[in-house]
Amino acid sequence: METKNIMIVGVGGQGSLLASKLLGHLFLSAGYDVKVSEVHGMSQRGGSVVTYVRYGDKVYSPVIERGEADFIVSFELLEAARWLPNLRDGGQIVTNTQQIDPMPVITGQVSYPEGLVEKLRAAGVKVDALDCVGLAREAGSVKAVNIVLLGRLSNYFDMPKEQWLASLEANVPPKFLEMNRKAFFLGREGH
């Protein structure tokens, strides 16, 4: 199988590490070669952060370049737009509709672009946008945004949902499992 590429993008501190850990576990247990690349250090402090997940028969590079991502999973709307050049032709964006103002917007130098989902769609990009914060809250914790997103992402894969749930179970503490299962299904089936 040709290597598949998933980018997880967001703002430093949003908790994308668990999402990449879970995906890594999922694809490894499905028998694929996997590479996951993270960002640590200075760029984490509220900056734009990105994690790469790649899987296939044999994966070489740990990074995903412009025009290569099959999926961009975004924790924040502006970040989905920022990383658009990395999406391959015909690739899919799955994004949280939450907006977090970056410092140049906060200080009033520039404004947060409006109608990004519509603009992305107008550019011919497939966008699946949902209010993950609202759904995570419904599941029991705003911290479950990552699992809501993964639930949504799972719709685009042939793998049975049991496999996703097994990876969920292997990567979250037992006391939060039920809440995270709920978050997963709210993402998978929610609107």
Binding site: G67, L78, R82, P85, D89, M103
Partner: peptide, 18 residues
């Protein structure tokens, strides 16, 4: 590979003090 871009500029998001 080919790549897409939105016509408008995307505000930068530099790291900040928490």
């Amino acid at each position: 590979p080919v790549e897409k871009e939105l016509p408008e500029s995307i505000p930068v998001r530099p790291p900040v003090m928490c």
